[in-house]
Design a protein around this nucleic acid. Structure first.
Lengths: 126, 126, 126, 126
DNA sequence: GTGGTCTAGACCACA
DNA sequence: GTGGTCTAGACCACA
């Protein structure tokens, strides 16, 4: 389900958060789906339960899941999450475009390069 | 010359690195310009000299400056730096576009939102 | 009769307690009314019988119902319950008013905002 | 500075959060004031550093403080925090008033009791 | 069994 | 020194 990248600088709990966010946004984990328990996911990833606990807390705070004490954690999908992510992506791109403009990089030039990268189908595995 | 944002979560040395990179790429700090000494910049920013030292080392590693023992640090501008940065930006945008595609966000929709943000002239101070 | 809100952070047994308290205080469940059995209510709510048992015990402890072995649980309405709840509410409000005073929030300001909220008919479903 | 109440059911980290929120909102801890380090506060309260760490993280998330790695945590006072708290208090009172109305408790009666409590100067120690 | 909190102790990046 | 992350292991309330 999830594979950790120990050569990644980011903390483990954050990698878990990001992977689950993607699965939820993409609908791979459907609404009300019961996520693996803190302990079982911790065991599966050979990681301390506290680390998974932290990831789940963060995801709950962000509205990606809800937890019921004694029952477990469940996916709370909400279309608004997708909108939020879309806005984040748009804002991020806008920032980059502005930085490029600031460095006198022609917008056309920049997007030509973007297209080339996209054609090469450079696919970061998720 | 540089103002630090303590409410920014990133480490201080990284903020210094980024600011100097921008000044150098934009040509505000011209080639062979002598940068302030580690100690004086540290004093100016009320920051630990170790922090500035780390920033300068990082900039040297990335090719933004060179140091001459006993003389100081100097700007090494090189047009290739600009190309490198351009490629980084393009790659970054390509990644975001691919993520959006993955989430079934229409490319047109996304770029409409990017344009809107750009029109608003939302200007993150650098 | 009762609907649970799984996105509510409070434990399930507490939600059951609160709902029944309200029904009893409001007289919807009249004195000596026989409550559903632990098992049937548990089945109806798709919940562990332990959970309902805990709710009933709590309600008995608080004087909202009495149980007769082999017969079931019955509403024990008592006007004094209403007085107790009234005092709790008053005390709670007094605490909040004192906190506001402590933060130099003008009492008039505070109650103007309270009135506005009430006008909006903001109705948390119970 | 802070005293813990072990008979309180709420978790320790939350008690710490609440106490510091109050000190910050009241201005007892002024803007940019350096809070005690995670370790020193942990030692002072005879509590594990992780527990304080959790409290500080929560306070940062809520905008009550900002942390600078290697330097420490600092108060970020913002008048908006006071407005937010005021709205929370108002909403809470409105909820209670509505509950009382629902139970056919006369508003005048309720507020007479509130006033009596306030006169008695019942002061929850902070 | 399940999430939530906590201790004791460690290591890391940053300053 | 300072915050941030993590492990190993424990105990609790809830279901």
């Amino acid at each position: 389900m999830i594979t950790l990248d120990y050569s990644d600088n980011r903390p483990i709990f954050q990698q878990v958060v990001e992977k689950l966010q993607i699965y939820i946004l993409k609908g791979i984990l459907p609404p009300d789906y019961k996520l693996p328990s803190v302990r079982s996911l911790a065991a599966e990833l050979s990681v301390n339960p506290n680390t998974i606990q932290k990831a789940y807390s963060e995801l709950e705070r962000e509205g990606f899941l809800y937890t019921v004490k004694g029952k477990g954690a469940f996916v709370r999908f909400d279309d608004s999450l997708l909108d939020v992510r879309k806005s984040e992506i748009a804002e991020h791109i806008a920032d980059l475009v502005m930085e490029a403009a600031d460095l006198k990089i022609a917008k056309d030039d920049l997007f030509t390069e973007v297209e080339e990268i996209l054609k090469k189908g450079k696919g970061k595995e998720i």
